[in-house]
Write a protein that binds this DNA or RNA. Structure first.
Lengths: 214, 214
DNA sequence: CAAATGTCGAATGTCGACATTTATGGAGGA
DNA sequence: TCCTCCATAAATGTCGACATTCGACATTTG
């Protein structure tokens, strides 16, 4: 058995699941005892999982009080997307090797898939295609340190906000925006690539943040 | 009491202290029982502290085996410094407000202080001045998300490698390198600032990594 | 003699219980 | 009616103990 699955991992998965299906929403209290009871384990592994999620930025934690699902302010939302644009843009611009023809083809197909999914109103497929699109790009970096940071941030934003960004643009716009990014990437001008992705995420960040200015 | 000091915090401080004074070195095993015994607490808070340090990247962890002080490969060292240059450069270039005259003055004095400390062979003062120099720069960002990432990375590199970088350059070079960075920052060309800091850390990263190619 | 195997000690993984702190809700008084 | 205070309940913080797993050494076998 290569990767031994310990209890804390299960708990983390469980909480992520609750976040995904909306049973846990930003601001909700996360009670260790409840998680422990639900999963039939003691609080020790649950505490580890919770502390892990706190480290990931998915939960906010205050000693003696407990933890709640992270509730980012509009500014924090923007900041997070800015940071992601910075990291992803650099990762892509910095990854040395060329794209194979099949890799380019795949990425272009993902743009089409996004448009089709959006047109069909299949948010899940759209979001999944988007995630794959971006991961195929930033995943090319050989800088594992960078990759880890990107994935942490990506996962956090995905779990907290994935519900929303499907509705910001028309199917056409979604395809065009991502095709434009691809054009920058394939042309290979580092600085332009970085600027492009920064802008891409700044815009998304502002749109998401606008939903939380109540 | 604003910030309640819990046991795990003490343990984290303790481990960081051991890293600072060299009693813990990369690759050393970190035993929960020993830490618990040394600090007179049970293993529960120790485990939390260890998991926290794992999240910070200071410890490597393998289930059922335990954790060791992170032992970065030369490539990982370079990657980490590249990431830091990326984050710090952007944070500085992106921070909007101008420098006050006193702020500029303070930064220039830190350059001088670094030179003097290096000339005196006072590594501790040199390292401290360097840390303050960089923190005064990147700390100007209002992007808390970014700041958190920078400080995590900064702290990690500091604790793992602070012993070395004092010896890479002559006192003159140290002062000149940092004065050059200041010049870029004060002139305010965003892209040049980012490039400058990236280069600064790439060079440092390669020098540190070279020490670990045994 | 080398390699595989069995055994033992030690460290981690998990548990249940207790101590401490916080939040809640009601009783009492202004 | 509203505020204050206190009592109660519930959640977190910590502890000690047990179960399980890993690593190392001694032993056996080819």
């Amino acid at each position: 058995m290569i990767n031994r699955q310990t209890y804390p991992d299960h708990v983390v998965e469980h909480v992520c699941g609750l976040l995904r299906n909306g049973q846990l929403q930003p601001g909700d209290k996360v009670r260790e005892s409840h998680l422990a009871a639900d999963l039939g384990v003691s609080r020790a592994p649950v505490r580890e999982a919770v502390r892990h999620l706190v480290g990931e930025g998915l939960l906010d934690y205050r000693p003696q009080i407990g933890s709640i699902v992270a509730k980012l302010s509009p500014q924090q939302i923007i900041d997070s997307y800015v940071a992601r644009g910075l990291l992803e843009g650099f990762a892509i611009a910095d990854s040395g090797h060329e794209f194979s023809a099949t890799a380019k083809q795949e990425l272009r197909q993902l743009c089409e898939l996004m448009e089709v999914s959006a047109a069909d109103g299949d948010d899940e497929a759209l979001i999944d295609a988007g995630a794959r699109f971006h991961r195929q790009l930033y995943g090319r970096t050989e800088n594992q340190q960078l990759l880890g940071n990107i994935e942490r941030l990506s996962n956090k934003l995905h779990l907290l906000f994935y519900r929303h960004w499907a509705n910001f643009y028309s199917p056409d716009q979604i395809r065009d925006r991502h095709q434009q990014l691809l054009k920058l990437v394939f042309e290979g001008e580092g600085w332009a690539v970085e600027q492009g992705f920064r802008q891409h995420y700044i815009e998304t960040g502002h749109k998401v943040a606008a939903l939380y200015t109540t």
